[in-house]
Write a protein that binds this DNA or RNA. Structure first.
Lengths: 254, 254
DNA sequence: ATATATCCTTGACATACATCAACCGCATGC
DNA sequence: GCATGCGGTTGATGTATGTCAAGGATATAT
């Protein structure tokens, strides 16, 4: 069953890191998953890996599998004819890819780092969804969450200025980072951006130059510190949230 | 059962207009809906109406019901502290409001015209979802569709210019209009905008002045004709789609 | 008929961000 | 050693859209 875990047992999020890192150890961690159904699914799963920069599927292509991201970072993007591109999804380990009930991918899926995916053919997966309501329910829950974050993202794209956009992105990454690794060095928070400046720009609806300038500006103003280009230190998370302009006081998960 | 129909029977979309307009006639139209479960649900449903401009729920408020929009237009909006607001959902008749499993509304829901909603208390609705997998499946399908349109919307917000945004919105409204009324006067297509210029601006991440200017510009260039402020005639839908800059050749549903 | 409010349009001007271009730092390869 | 490429930074300049302001059209109320 392994990587399907997040779909089945939300309360297992804490042990997710273990699940993801070590399929073998996982059975010990997650007793709930020991059903025959899942064993059956386990038998039809297979793995695919992609190198950084590789495209998993192109928008419009047939996609006869669903998958769970095991490691690495992938993005969903949409493009206009002239090449303008907008990221519409950022996939981190344990995120779900694909959708039961449709067989063409509506977006480009691209690996931005080296990526490992755990795949299931769509048909057996769908059959199991019918037999095991748990899975459908969990999938609904995950989809509703995604819809919520898509809508927050829309607020960002439509109404925030460049500085707020950058700060928001950093806060989002910090939060997701923290949710997975719980790596928070006493007040000072540090995070690795899994994105190039260009990918950040595509996330935020900006150009890479503007991203770069705003990163420099936030650094000048002491909101962040930079070690290298990708490693960011956040001395004061609340300050960052202020810069993000967000209404909701969404602190870090403890 | 009436308004829950869209959730249960996607193939009934054609008869939706009848369902929505006339609850009484509906039973005749939709044989599939005559189950005991639904009768039970039918017994706990109730109606609420709102006047144009009224707020149905504020973001963060308790929301102990789910609902189906019977008539009128409602919007989901998010705001920043300083009042900048972004529309994140546009609800037309038969759209679903609320989400099982959460009890606080994550957005403002506002009636932009007079609105009638068919409501169900959340608890009995959720119980029925457990007993009737159909409903959960349908809800998943609808949520996935919403996620898709949210993501197209993100492309619009992040990467389209003002003219393309306006053209896209008109195309979207035209499509949804057509899907419901099938009102297409031989080539020439006419539609009523259910939104003020300000609401359009909030949809598109623009100011109302820019919306107004671009409408005028599209009119000057013969892409649209205006009768009054809200009634739009589209002489050539393909031309409009070109202006929208969209890759996908999403014609009108026939 | 006159007032008032709402929604919309248009103009003049300001500015945030995009565009174009040069250059830096650091790999990798010959 | 030096070239080449990639990701990133910074500067000069342009422009699309925001901002501020005035006024038009229509409806409702007095």
């Amino acid at each position: 069953m392994t990587y399907i875990n997040r779909m089945l047992a939300p309360e297992l999020k804490d042990s997710l890191q273990e699940c993801v890192d070590c399929p073998i150890r996982h059975r010990a961690v997650c007793a709930r998953c020991e059903s025959e159904e899942l064993d059956a699914l386990d038998r039809v799963k297979y793995y695919r890996s992609f190198q950084a920069g590789q495209t998993v599927v192109w928008s419009g292509d047939r996609m006869d599998f669903v998958a769970s991201l095991v490691s690495g970072v992938a993005t969903l993007t949409q493009t206009l004819e002239d090449g303008r591109t907008q990221m519409v999804g950022l996939l981190l380990p344990s995120d779900f890819i694909g959708r039961p009930g449709r067989d063409r991918a509506p977006y480009n899926v691209t690996a931005t780092t080296d990526v490992l995916m755990c795949c299931f053919r769509k048909k057996p997966f769908e059959e199991m969804m019918v037999r095991t309501p748990h899975i459908g329910q969990r999938l609904l829950e995950m989809t509703l969450d995604e819809l919520d974050s898509a809508r927050e993202w829309m607020l960002l794209l439509g109404r925030k200025n460049a500085r707020e956009k950058i700060a928001s992105l950093l806060a989002i990454v910090a939060r997701r980072d923290a949710a997975m690794h719980l790596r928070k060095a006493k007040g000072k928070l540090s995070l690795d951006l899994p994105l190039t400046r260009e990918a950040m720009a595509d996330y935020l609806g900006l150009t890479l130059e503007t991203v770069s300038r705003q990163m420099s500006s936030l650094k000048r103003d002491g909101v962040i510190e930079l070690q290298g280009k990708r490693h960011v230190i956040v001395p004061d998370f609340d300050r960052l949230l202020e810069e993000a302009g967000d209404d909701s006081d969404g602190g870090l998960p403890e």
